[in-house]
Nucleic acid binder design. Sequence first.
DNA 1: TATGAATGAGTTTTCATTCAT
DNA 2: CATGAATGAAAACTCATTCAT
Lengths: 200, 200, 200, 200
Amino acid sequence: MTKPPTRIQKRNQAAIMSAGLDIFSQFGFRGTTLDQIADAAGLSKPNLLYYFPSKEAIHTALLERLLENWLDPLKALNSGGDPVQEIIAYAHRKLALSKDYPRESRLFANEILQGAPRIENILHTDLKQLVDEKAAVIKGWADKGKIAPVDPYHLIFSIWALTQHYADFDVQVQAVMPGSDPYAGAATYLDHVISRILQP
Amino acid sequence: MTKPPTRIQKRNQAAIMSAGLDIFSQFGFRGTTLDQIADAAGLSKPNLLYYFPSKEAIHTALLERLLENWLDPLKALNSGGDPVQEIIAYAHRKLALSKDYPRESRLFANEILQGAPRIENILHTDLKQLVDEKAAVIKGWADKGKIAPVDPYHLIFSIWALTQHYADFDVQVQAVMPGSDPYAGAATYLDHVISRILQP
Amino acid sequence: MTKPPTRIQKRNQAAIMSAGLDIFSQFGFRGTTLDQIADAAGLSKPNLLYYFPSKEAIHTALLERLLENWLDPLKALNSGGDPVQEIIAYAHRKLALSKDYPRESRLFANEILQGAPRIENILHTDLKQLVDEKAAVIKGWADKGKIAPVDPYHLIFSIWALTQHYADFDVQVQAVMPGSDPYAGAATYLDHVISRILQP
Amino acid sequence: MTKPPTRIQKRNQAAIMSAGLDIFSQFGFRGTTLDQIADAAGLSKPNLLYYFPSKEAIHTALLERLLENWLDPLKALNSGGDPVQEIIAYAHRKLALSKDYPRESRLFANEILQGAPRIENILHTDLKQLVDEKAAVIKGWADKGKIAPVDPYHLIFSIWALTQHYADFDVQVQAVMPGSDPYAGAATYLDHVISRILQP
DNA sequence: TATGAATGAGTTTTCATTCAT
DNA sequence: CATGAATGAAAACTCATTCAT
């Protein structure tokens, strides 16, 4: 009985998601007002609530969409591939995520900063399980001497930190390196860093 | 005629600062209410406003106190010291800041995520100037072949990212590595990373 | 040029009336929403307003339909009949109204509780006139010694109270006598009560 | 640690309770607005919410206070007393309640009409238990031939109906008997009715 | 007829701040 | 110093009604 969304529905839902992403990623859940989102989406507040039943619903939808792809770069780490190449490729996929979806990264950062009330259980289940699995792969590589004997958890943390920093702390990066696209330099630097870390 | 603060004044101001730090660092400026701070400080709301004229004032005081020491680790980078040792020592000072002052780190992260409305000019002046200066030092070391020829700006960013991550994304780190103190492992890993990055 | 209502029109108008009766009788005018009525009637809100121009219109239509028959039991009180039999028969007609049209009874009760804003004038005209007339009849019977010398107004009130109670306070009756049909016992009891009251 | 209420607190809480009783008893829960209550209490809306945390809380407080005394008249029915006198006295206590607390009676009526969502469980526990107990007493009297063999449950319902009617349907009573105090006549009539009903 | 889309006017509640004591 | 009392402005959400198709 659920009808397919019409064109207008699609357009407005997309506008709300984009506007919500803009505002939520900047001000966090409680710091965001429906007025801001409605303004940014070009809709009246009641009309906005015609498409999403509540502020919470918009935020939840955004977090869910975010989480659909958030772990993909790590999932794609292939235990059968060349260790160094695999990890470098992973770091680049993660950096691309920061470059192409910086608002999503900041939304995630906001959620974590606030204690992750809405995704706590995902962190403890899906995320932990995936990291454990991939950490085991990396540890296997290290045990075989294919990469340097680093702690695989901290290696993964470092890739998260190094790549997400460019999205989350964008304002600071821009202040220090005004007018430049930092992602080109970041990619080169990342290559250097990861390969050096891993060199057996 | 301004009288020196009494013991009670000092105690209450400190309580407010600590409570404000707790809440602001978690929920951001707009997501924080005076009620929360007053509760956490064990004061009534009007009494709280007796010590600070407004919500903004508490936040400002916290940011100012934060900025007093925030750049110290980088300032201490000594152009006359051993390049690798200096940079590693800097990274360790920064990591210690994350460990000892995680709330301050999150307050800073919140401010940056929100577009740094209150410290934008500091980023463009003090911070940029300091980074430019230290980047020049590092570049000098690289030009002389004392360290690997890395982009000094991205090197500094990476040290920020690697160290602040443990404070800012603490919830996520705890979810992935439950029950452990991640800072010990982080220090070891950091040694490895920085020394590898810099090896000429 | 006004066309006669089609089958669909009739069906939908009836559905709206029934749904409106359900909700209005439970929540009162202001406590009822068009959404509730539209849901219960299986129509969309705009379609509902195609049949009735406003919420008020539905409520008015219901009250009007209610009032068409509300006074019939009393009107049928025949001054030429046997006094006791006439009054007992009246009470039974009233009890049947409660049993067969409990929602209408509750709609009326709601209206009265709210100060009867919409039917105040009917109370003061039609109702008062009818009650005065029938009270005179009853008084005549009492004066002639055909029934006990009771105040005819309070007698009429008591018949209203005794019979409407089973519809209006249904929830309470069901709570006290769970699982039973109270109307059978009520009828027997009513016979006893009215005949005892009236015995000369 | 709970402090005793100050004079202002007492005054304002009482004003809110009285104003809430006025409005809730007339319009029901959903039909009542805080604006109405605040106006009637002579307070601003936020100040009203300073004393009661929500609209629901005011309503709950009123219902609770109501229920404190609502069952007292029936509780006082003494199995050791003279049957007819006891039941007549009970009816008079109940009528006095209607006379002295008509708004409370209408609040209760509203709650029942709406399906008793907030006191349903009290109806099924406290009320049912009390009625069962007193019905047993009355049945004992009937079995011994001290009163007529009436159904004790319907007897109790009839006393409720006969007495509450004057409070709940006050507008209608006033319309039919304008300018009079109906309670005097009601008391006389009630004497007549109950004694006749019970005559063995 | 029917419905998806839209909204102005409310309604409940929150919150930073002020006032009086 | 401290707090109970009070409030204007705003925020989240509701709802009867209108519009366009």
